[in-house]
């Protein structure tokens, strides 16, 4: 297997000078694939992703994007290198319209963004309908779409999603996963943290089960779903 497109290799670290939350944790994703991080509450799933995005103080390990070491880059610089991050909470500009949210996503771009915006609207037709409304007026699921759309506006190579389905209904969740698969098909790598482990692993090319800041199981999504131990401990039988 060739080098993965994005890899956080044996990461250890925590916030500031606090205790380490991650212990030699490795997360990677290949081009156009979906990688999912699952695990119990407090296992450090989101922390692992934030570490890959540069929001954590690492003292061991490195992050590589397309073979280049980006460990020393700030999150903002990583955005410029083609990484996009959708935080779990307050991930839209609530007082801006949907369209303005998308424009802000493309802030770093100097070229014509109308093509990308059309693509986002194609992916999320409801956003086109509501493009003049402020994001704060939308439903939770629609707001998640705005958040993902905003991140896509940078034309990222990697899209990182922190629990994108938190707090949305199962129907909306299925719909959102479908969209995420569509995004991956366009060649964008997806790295996401999910609470709904079973559904997430179903669409995952690669799954990471984390426990206490460490990799517990790593395999394809399918294999993890089939693994009796994973099923018993993390998927509720």
């Amino acid at each position: 297997m060739s080098d993965p497109f994005l890899i956080g290799d044996s990461l250890s670290g925590g916030y500031g000078r606090g205790v380490d939350i991650l212990h030699s944790c490795t997360i990677s994703v290949n081009e156009g694939e979906i990688a999912v991080i699952v695990g119990p509450n407090g296992a450090g799933k989101s922390t692992a992703m934030k570490a890959v995005f540069g929001m954590l103080d690492l003292h061991e390990g490195s992050v590589k994007l397309g073979g280049e070491d980006i460990s020393h880059l700030s999150p903002q610089d990583r955005v410029a290198r083609g990484m996009a991050f959708v935080p779990q909470n307050s991930n839209t500009f609530t007082s801006l319209t949907v369209e303005e949210n998308l424009e802000m996503g493309a802030f770093l771009r100097r070229d014509d963004i109308s093509g990308t915006m059309a693509q986002v609207y194609e992916l999320f037709p409801v956003l086109k309908e509501k493009r003049r409304q402020t994001a704060g007026e939308l439903s939770g699921g629609q707001r998640q779409q705005v958040a993902v759309g905003r991140a896509l506006m940078t034309r990222p190579r990697v899209l990182m999603l922190d629990e994108p389905t938190a707090g949305v209904s199962p129907v909306v969740m299925d719909e959102l996963f479908d969209r995420i698969i569509e995004v991956a098909r366009t060649g964008i790598s997806i790295l996401m943290v999910e609470q709904n482990a079973r559904q997430a692993l179903e669409i995952a090319d690669r799954g990471y089960v984390m426990v206490q800041g460490q990799n517990a199981f790593t395999d394809t999504g399918e294999a993890l779903l089939a693994d009796p131990e994973v099923r018993r401990s993390f998927l509720g039988g």
Binding site: Q76, P87, N91, F93, L96, E100, M104, L108, T154
Partner: peptide
């Protein structure tokens, strides 16, 4: 304007504005 919108975005959600490269 782009700058004006970025100011509103920054005022609305500073962290997300940083993530967007503002």
């Amino acid at each position: 304007t782009r700058t004006g919108k970025s100011m509103r975005a920054f005022s609305d959600n500073e962290d997300l504005a940083l993530l967007s490269g503002i």
